[in-house]
Amino acid sequence: MAILLAVWFVCSYVLGIFLVEPLNGTRIGGFPLGFWFAHQGSIYVFIVLILVYAATMDRLDRRYGVD
């Protein structure tokens, strides 16, 4: 879980806010990269994070016979 929270922090704050200016120098298609993280990427990453968490917890629950 600590790892997931670290990814949460990196994608939203580091890539989307702290490093947005240097990242904007790089373009992917029509997007400046930092801007893309701030307006689109971070949301996709959030969804994937919860997906990974929910799946991991399901596995743990099954392994220890909870639920």
């Binding site: 307006h39 959030f46 929910a54």
Partner: peptide, 25 residues
């Protein structure tokens, strides 16, 4: 709002979605 703020509109986009990660975890 985002239309007038440009990049800064991310405060709403990230701010109103990122909380769900905290909520779920």
């Amino acid at each position: 709002l985002i239309s007038f703020m440009g990049y800064t509109g991310t405060i709403y986009l990230m701010g109103w979605t990122g909380g769900y990660v905290l909520l779920a975890l």
